[in-house]
Amino acid sequence: MSPNKIRQLPTFARMVSAIWYRHYRVYQNNFWTNSFPTVLEPLIFILAVGWGLASAVGTMDGMDYLTFIAPAQAMMAAVYTSAFEESYGTYFRMMVDHNYDAMISTPVGVNEVFWGELLYTGTKGWFFSLVVIVVLSFFGVIHSAWAVLVPFVGFFTAVAFGSLGLFAARLVKNINQFNFFITGVISPLILFSGTLFPVDKLPPVVSIVAKMLPLYYFIDVSRMLTTGRFTSDLYIAVPYLLVVPFILGAFAVNSMNKKLIQ
């Protein structure tokens, strides 16, 4: 091995995509085990809650109940895959397998590692909300061709919730503390963001708070896309979903920088 000429540094985009590819490759090897619950969960939900409750509830917000909860199922798939991947998954990669140490002993830095990871989790959000929409379309609950855009909302949802997962991974002292994150953060965010009932049904103060929760607008937009019923909310929701995930992402990546480089 002769003294080699100095190779050029890979670009930011090249490094981020190398990280993305790593996760893709690793996930791919366990694809069926990993994706089975994510696909099955909304299916069970729509069968049990949908069929069981739908007849009792009748219509919700001017549409039949299954139509109302269908877009929320797609977002929940994105939320679950990203929140788990970036909390438990990140914790294991950091504390048990030491994968990040391997990554950042190359030209890759902490920023590239976690932007690559958030983009990957976004891709998973895209994929699983796509699967859910395809599955649900057989139940006759997708009423508009705009629904093809739902997976893209799923992408942004997953980036946002992946970022929350990273905060959790940064903060927990041991693996059991993730219970606080899942039960204390993710579950209420899902229940109070217009998944099962419109937030307007909540007491006024609670409803205002609910609309400020990260998931609300993602579900709102998805529902517009699957029903084709667009409201003026769209003007807030679109900029919101394009910007907020990346603000959360920037804070999360910065916080991982503090955790890993000491």
């Binding site: 190779r7 050029q8 090249r14 490094m15 190398a18 990280i19 391997a102 190359t106 030209p107 890759v108």
Partner: peptide, 8 residues
């Protein structure tokens, strides 16, 4: 392969 990707 993946590790070499980190070097571009």
């Amino acid at each position: 392969q993946i590790y070499s990707g980190y070097f571009g």
